[in-house]
Design a protein around this nucleic acid. Structure first.
Lengths: 294, 294
DNA sequence: TAGTGGTCTAGACCACATC
DNA sequence: ATGTGGTCTAGACCACTAA
């Protein structure tokens, strides 16, 4: 924006918001017809201006990135909930006072990040962990034979406690802050295959109990999204091979010392805020972890 | 191409070619101003037209996809080699007789697939396995402490042999067809960390010897790309935890039965043709396999 | 039939790199 | 100064979906 924003009033820092709201009359009409001036009076603006050429890192940002950020804010605030349709490109273009093409590019990126999904002829929808497509983005365990499926979950434990140092560090909170700990076993075709130990940000999951977890059918992330308004949108995993200790061996019905896949995951919501740490132990004799490099 | 080529020479089928080429006078001007006719005289066309509404699956394909396919064909044929710059968007637009925006969208997708990389102010370049950025797309092993690095490779073996059934199946060739087998150990900071067993399509790697592999400094894929004209652009991995057998234990200096990460990879070149099968055993006590879900 | 996303074009201007 | 990719706009038409 530099360009664009520059034109806009100096201090002001307009912001898409104000522009929209039924007050288009202002001087902010698209450049096309009139205004041969640079490219000034256009629309939303970025904060720092390159024009000033003072700051070394002016935090320059293209218009469509700003629109993207605005849309993301609406997603985060719950203005459009998972599964719902967001306004059409034309509507958003009108709201933010930019061209449809700019909105389009913003949505393109959001779609690439799987935050929304476009459906031709229907509209653009907020993705949800209820959809089959999304489910297997976060469960990469595939059976050697047969279709990928979702195993039955057996909750062993669900309690509130103070975060140990290691977990606190990963969740970016202070040691001793409240967290919810869950332990569960996943059964695939009758065999105990995954042992998960999960820590959730206490603040985001007040009222989560073993009962709720047990009653819930479907992916845990779908519950989190529906009941606690916390949507996992990204995760990072560290994978190792480890030997089963006594506890794991018993719960997974394998000999002590058996090789297990250890998957340490940190999951993030909007704004790249970590909200979950998960340590899974996978039995990989009849399943494997599928990964594509590209 | 289908379409594009089709248009060429072929019977009528508008075709991009004819339209452009210094002969704008014709009746093939963009729809905007004149020509209220359907949308006919526009530009290149897909083979089967939806208009005919005859075939059930008309194989319709957007223009930019056709352009993308054409560019990919030039990449595959070696017209533009890894590391080189491809023609500018304007040039390509002129060559294919489409707008710059269409070429842009085609290149956007190629860039998303990491086949090319754009550099503002410079041009668009064919990606290469020599670049640091690309290297770690295919080596996901990260040390617990310190920066990711590329270990020293120690080639144990490199010989030609007939493909076993399993390997042949994965490489989509016949059992007994020629393959090159390589076995090597990767050392990270002085410790044997990876034991690789690699099978390559015999036809594509004539003349590959242990000497060449040993002399080569840098990623193996860079050698393949530079010396054998075979570029790996995608891979699929199946990951498991296994116990070290005697051979692996000895070569990796770990006790027999130690848990190891087993990574079975199939790598593909252009046209999704498999050219390599690789089975790696990773010691994950001081390193982990990094993966991001999004 | 109307509305939504998808494609294509054309032209203007900006930011970056190089000469 | 020139050339390259990057952004933005505007308008036309197509394809898909649903009422």
């Amino acid at each position: 924006m530099s360009s664009l924003s520059t034109s806009l009033s100096g201090a002001a820092v307009p912001g898409a918001q104000d522009s929209g709201a039924a007050t288009p009359g202002a001087g902010t009409q698209p450049p096309s017809s009139a205004s041969p001036t640079p490219s000034s009076a256009t629309a939303p603006q970025a904060s720092a201006q390159p024009g000033t050429h003072a700051a070394p890192s002016p935090t320059f940002s293209p218009l469509y990135q700003q629109i993207k950020a605005l849309i993301m804010r609406s997603l985060q605030s719950g203005e459009w909930k998972p599964g719902e349709m967001i306004p059409s490109e034309m509507e958003l273009a009108a709201r933010y006072k930019v061209s449809q093409g700019t909105v389009r590019k913003a949505i393109d990126e959001l779609a690439a990040e799987n935050l929304v999904a476009r459906r031709q002829g229907k509209g653009t929808f907020v993705t949800t962990h209820h959809e089959d497509v999304v489910k297997f983005r976060f469960l990469r365990l595939v059976p050697d034979e047969g279709e990928p499926h979702y195993g039955a979950s057996h909750v062993l434990e669900c309690k509130r406690l103070r975060a140990p140092a290691e977990i606190a560090r990963l969740l970016d909170i202070r040691t001793g802050d409240s967290v919810v700990q869950i332990r569960r076993v996943l059964n695939f075709s009758g065999e105990s295959t995954v042992l998960d130990e999960i820590w959730l940000l206490g603040a985001n999951f007040k009222g989560l109990t073993a009962e709720k977890l047990t009653e819930w059918k479907g992916p845990m992330y779908a519950l989190f999204e529906a009941e606690f308004g916390t949507r996992m949108i990204r995760a990072s995993e560290k994978i190792r091979a480890v030997a089963a200790d006594e506890t794991a061996a018993e719960l997974l019905s394998v000999p002590v010392g058996s090789p297990l896949l250890s998957v340490e995951r940190v999951s993030y919501t909007y704004g790249d805020r970590p909200v979950e740490v998960r340590r899974g132990l996978y039995v990989t004799t009849k399943h494997y972890y599928q990964n594509d490099l590209s």
